[in-house]
Structures are given as structure tokens and as C-alpha cells.
Design a protein around this nucleic acid. Structure first.
Lengths: 221, 221, 221, 221
DNA sequence: CATGAATGAGGCTTCATTCAT
DNA sequence: CATGAATGAAGCCTCATTCAT
């Protein structure tokens, strides 16, 4: 290896982050080695350390990449929300599609963010936790809003609803990524909205003993 | 050090697996070291290799532990299902509680199974994938059954429903584990069933443009 | 290399420290590599880290070795001083011989201690500085004592005298070590005492302008 | 960075050597990095290699700097010695002051020369050894001269006397450098000469058993 | 069975040196 | 001349695994 291609700092760094995204997604933070990354980037060992002080810093750069994209998407969505006075349902549908589409068009990043929880420092990676929190806030905010304007029933625990939104999104996306398939986002969004509007039980069924007056889910620490 | 306490093979092995569960849950497979495990088990280094051929085999023993408990629970549930002719809704409620309770009373194991996906061999851990598949089958079977007897609407993609079940369960449980809280399972189950029966949208709202006739979510690989 | 000789911890450690002394003396702390040490000790890489947490800790173990020997010698000397009421001059002579002999029979250690000043952490190696201070205190104490009992002239700056003692010792020893020679300690001691008693100038010489009433050497920081 | 200031070769080189002196004195040869030097010189990495073929060559340039200054001083002193027919004692006093003053007004260089012994190539740095030899010759020559004209007692081993001169100088200077103090050179010189003339023992003391007839210090290799 | 000293492959990082611009 | 991105050998350290006791 003796070709000495010189790039400006930003370009090289982007190239290295790209390589790192692929490697971290494929092997996970701990298994991925610097050797993997520089091989993927076709770059010498020292070059890596010209741009990152450590493997961990490279991981953070990857998370940054996700965070930027995520923020950009959130901003786009917000802009649309105010500019476009559509029916709420349509708006929600678009949000779902946007969100799923975002995660699915950044599969490697999504894999890293959704599955590398314990990866870096087992018990405290500020930036990582921040990202996860951001993602959960994203839906939490929507839920509060929808409950505020009486769209969502008020007798449901918002934390439970949040688990529903976050859990289903995560599951749908990870499933698609694991299978390597490319789901029809519109169909998924429709089914989801349908679920939210009407439940999944065939209407007209006789009810069991007691239900429909659920208490809010309490938590005893 | 001369605490040459001699136990029969099975007991020692159990002790080691117990220690490994704690360590793998706390640190993750890659970060956990043999030293961590033998320290937790208060056992000499060599003793570990008397019971497992490698670190990976110890991990598999941990997964086995989960699998056994899971199978036992599934069997118990099946037995109850046939012996106890309750209203369906009650049955479902009990299943949910049972399932959540199972995961939450084995927090360390659950953490390992739900978060160590890429941990061992990044791209092929037969046993691990088997467990995840088993868990998904568990709900998939229930879904097929409920659709078969016309309890669940037939116009919903079973795979989507499966993502809903699996995603929500996972999320609820991981959230509780992360927070270190102990949710009220009955309340959660009630809310969940309520969601399944009626959706989360406040009834009587005017509909947006079009919905309610969702096509099944197709997947183009 | 496949011979697996098992020794008890203390023995192996001693062997490693011995190897380290040779290597550090020959190459200096920075140039010496772990590979050098384990090669000299005929031991595997991991074995080194079974006994020292780092290269620096091994260096400290080497300094400890010097410090122990030094302390032992100082104690021996003190004991003899009180038990043996010899003429002062004889006592001083013995001390010089003892001290030089000590340094010269631990050549590698002496080389390390006298020449690795900036070696470890350029600006602050507590233990290292402690040893150097100890050595200087050793002569400082003797000087104060001798001035106290009016053996040494009181019009000389004790710090200057200390520089004389320490500087000459260091120089004599390092010279011998550098040359690889083995000086006649008794002769050196005799010359030294002679110098202290009578100076080095041929007696009966006419004096220059002014001298003999030196002020104490002042220091302005 | 576009500060492409162009200097003539000699100026740039001087600037680099200046920077190197500071860095080598502060950190020692091994710990000092090219980065340290070019940072201190505010120069690009490549520029360094425009003037030196390697780090070692830069070190040699530093030693050269010392050697030049040293030679110049020696020449000055020699000139004065012949031109100025002072009493011997006064001459010696001036020499001492000159020599100490030289070392103390080039503290960084002195530190490098007196403490970087094993620094470069552990077992053979021709130029380094040359400098040390030069410095010792400086005093050796004086001693031979003084013994030749019967100023110094002839029954003292010249090598021992040399160790005395060199050791005390070194010690006084290094002490001052380490403390960061600025000793009164005249006072030091006076004390020193006093020591040489009369010893340090209070006159009129009864002698111990035997002394005063020292044999020359022999060396058995 | 149990112990823990010993092993060495492999991972992360530094830094002197080169060379395209 | 000057610059600074690029290179890769080499150093420190970790840890899964082995084996003499």
C-alpha cells in the first residue's frame, strides 16, 4: 500500500465515518477493530488517529452523524406541520412514514443506535443515552400534544402509549433490517393508524368480565 | 488460596451460570471477562474451563437457562389454556401478565436475550437467533389462533400484528428494567387489551380523508 | 517457547526485577521496552503484567530495590557508629568506604538512580525525587553533625559542603561505572580525607590577594 | 495555515535549534517529540526535515551549539590566562567563576549535556561522549598544569582530583538549575578555593590513627 | 476436581519520517 | 522553501486459554 492520496480534512473524515458506520453496524462497537475500519476506508493506521483521538471518539462521530440526520428530519417535520393544515390523521400518517423512512434509509446507523446499547461504556455513555432519549421524546411530545387536543383518549397512561409507539417502530424497523426487506411504508402506516383508531379486535364481540375502564398503569419502584 | 471446596459437577455449573448471568447482563458479552465471572463465582480460573470449553459456551449455557424457563412457561400457559375455559379476553389478559411477569422476574436473563443481539458472533449465532425466533413464534401462534377464530380482524397483516405484540412487550419490559421499576402488570395488561379492543383514538372523532380500509402491508425484498 | 516453569509469586517477581534492573541500566527507562525485559527474564509477555501493572510500576519496583538496600546500609552504618567508639577520622573513612562500596556493588541500580532523572515522568516522579533527596540527606546529616561537634569549620556553607560530598561521590562512582573499573576504595577514601583535612594546595605557598575568610555562598532566587 | 514565511536557511535552522534546546531540556531526548519542537518553533512538520535528516541530527545540532560555546569560552580563558599575569590563586578563582557562569547562563544546554547521558543511543553516542570528555579534559589540563608547577600537592591522584573538580562543578550547577536559583558565584568560588587550600577540617585537631600519607588511588579493572 | 501461574495472539495508540501540493 | 496529510513500524497492554501442581 503505497498510494498516497491526499484529501482535505473534512472529506477524509467523512470517508472514515462512513467506513466506521459500516463496520460498527456489522460487528458492533466492541468487536469492530481499528484494523476493520482502516481496511474498509483503505487508509493507513495513522490516518485514523489524524481524525479521531480514539476508537470511542470515532463511535461518537458516528452517533453525531445520526443525531444530525435525526434533528434535520425532526425540523423538516415540524416545518411541514405548521405550514400544512391537513387533517390530523393525514398528518400523523405522514409523520409515521417519514420516521420509518428515515430509519430505514439509514439502516446501518439505525442498527448501531438501536442495538449497541451496552456497547461502549457499559454503564454510562452520555451521548448514546442522549440520542435514545431524544428519540423517545420525539414520540412523547406528539402524544402529549394529541392528548392535549383530545385526539387521544385521556384515560391511557402516556408512558404506556410511548412504549407502544417506540416499541412498534423499533420492532418494525429492526425486523425489516434483519430480514433485509423493504416494507411498504404506506401500508404499514395505514395499518398502524387503523390500529390506533379502532383496535385490532373484530368489532361487535361480546366483552369478557371487566375492561374498558382501565386504571392508569402505576409503577412501584 | 486453599478453599478447595469440592462440589458435584451440576452444582458448580449452576453456580457458574448464575455468576455468568449477572456478569453478562451487567457488562454485555464482549466486555464481560472470564475474570469477572470467576470473581463473581468465587472460583479459580481453571475451574471455569472444567465446566465450559470457552467463554462462548458459557454464554450458550446462559441462553439455555433462558430457553428452559421460557419453554416451561409456555407449557404452563398451554396447559392452563385448555384446562380453564375462560372468556377469551380473560385468557389473553392472563397470558400477557404471565409473559410480562416471566420476563420481569428474570431481568438479567431478559436483558441478555433482548440486548445482546450482535454480541457473540456478529453474523451467526444459531442458538441466539433460535431463541428470538421462539419468542416471536409464541405471539405469532397466538395471533394466528385469534385470527382463526375471528377474534382478531382479518384485514390486518399478521406480521404487523406480531411486530406490535413483540415490540410493545419488549419496550415495556426493557423500560422497566432500565428504570429499575416494577410496573403494575395488571394495569399494563388492561391498558393493552383496551388498546387492542378500541384503539387509542377518542371515539366519535370525524375521520380524515381515507382510512379504515387498509391494504395489508406488503413487503418487497 | 513452550516451557512452562511455575514459580511462586515472590521468586518470579524478583527475577523480573533483576531483569528490569539490567535493562533499565543499559538502555534507560524510555528506550527499554517490555520486550527487552521479558526477553532478559525469558518469560512471556503476559507474565510481566502478572507482576506489574505497567512499565512504570516495574521501574518503581526497581527504585524500591535500591531504596531497601540503601536503607539497610544506612542502618548498618548507624549501628556501627554507636557501637564502635573509634576516632572520628576512622569513622568517616569507614563511612566513605561503605558508601562507595555500596554504590559500586550495585552498579546497575546506581546507574539507574544517578542517571535517569528526567526519565519517567519529565516533571515529577515522586518516588524518584524521594530517593535522590534521601541520598543527599545522608551526607547533609553527617555534615551537620560534624559541624556541630566542631570538626568541620563553621565558616563554610553547609550546602556547599553537601555539593562537595555528593558531587565527588557521584563523580567517582559514575566514572568507575563508565570505565568498568574497580577502584581501590581505601585509597580513594584516604585521598578524600586528606583533601578534607589539608586541602589540595601544596603547603607553604604564598597566598594571593584575599581568601581564607570566605563569606558563605549566598543564593538569590 | 498559510504563514509561508520564508527565511534563509541559517536563520531557520537557528530558530529550530533554539526550539529544540528548550524542548530537549524540558522533556529529555526520548520524550521530546518532533511535534513539540515544531510547535515551539511555530513551523510545519516538513520544515523540520528540511533542516535535519532526523531527530537525532537535531540533537547533535544542539550538542554542537554547546560545543561551540564551550570552545569559545575555553579560548577566551586561555587568552586571558596568558595576557593577564595575575597571582595563580586569582587566576584559578576567575576560571571557576567563568566556568560556572558559562554553565549557568546556558541552563538548558547544560541540563541537556549533563543529564541526557543514556538518552540517544544507549551505548554509543560518539559526539556526546566527546563533549563530556572535552569538559573533563578542561579541568584535567588545569590540574596537570598546577601539579607541574608544584602548586598542587603531587601525592594526590590526578584522576581523583579531576573527579573532585568535575563532580563539584556538576553538582553545584545542577543544584542551582534544579532549584531555579542563581547562586553567588564569587562566594562559591571563594569557598571552593578555600577548601582547596586548607581543607574543611577545623585546624589543630588531633589526627586519627593513620592518614596524610595516602597512596595514590589505584584501579584494578 | 480445584487452583492460579504462565502463555501469546491481538488490540489500541504513538510518533518519526515521507511526499504530494 | 514551506506545508501538513499520510504512512506504518513498533510500543504498551488485555485477556481467553492452557497446564503444572
Amino acid at each position: 500500500m503505497e498510494k498516497r492520496l491526499i484529501l482535505d480534512k473534512a472529506t477524509r473524515r467523512r470517508q472514515l465515518v462512513d467506513a466506521a458506520i459500516g463496520v460498527f453496524a456489522a460487528k458492533g462497537y466492541r468487536v469492530a477493530s481499528i484494523t476493520d475500519i482502516i481496511t474498509a476506508a483503505a487508509v493507513a493506521r495513522g490516518t485514523f488517529y489524524l481524525h479521531f483521538q480514539s476508537k470511542e471518539e470515532a463511535f461518537h462521530a458516528v452517533l453525531d452523524r445520526f443525531h444530525e440526520a435525526f434533528t434535520a428530519m425532526a425540523a423538516r417535520e415540524k416545518a411541514r406541520r405548521y405550514g400544512n393544515p391537513l387533517a390530523l390523521q393525514t398528518r400523523l400518517r405522514e409523520s409515521l412514514i417519514e420516521w420509518l423512512g428515515f430509519l430505514l434509509s439509514n439502516r446501518d446507523l439505525t442498527k448501531i443506535v438501536l442495538r449497541q446499547a451496552a456497547a461502549v461504556d457499559p454503564d454510562y455513555d452520555r451521548q448514546y443515552q442522549q440520542i435514545v432519549r431524544d428519540m423517545q421524546d420525539h414520540s412523547a411530545k406528539a402524544i402529549r400534544f394529541l392528548q392535549g387536543i383530545k385526539i387521544l383518549r385521556a384515560d391511557l397512561d402516556p408512558r404506556f402509549l410511548n412504549s407502544v409507539f417506540h416499541g412498534v417502530t423499533t420492532q418494525v424497523v429492526l425486523q425489516a433490517i434483519a430480514d433485509g426487506t423493504d416494507p411498504d411504508l404506506e401500508a404499514v402506516a395505514d395499518q398502524w393508524i387503523d390500529l390506533l383508531r379502532m383496535g385490532v379486535v373484530r368489532p361487535g364481540l361480546p366483552t369478557g368480565n371487566r375492561a374498558g375502564r382501565p386504571r392508569a398503569a402505576r409503577t412501584k419502584p
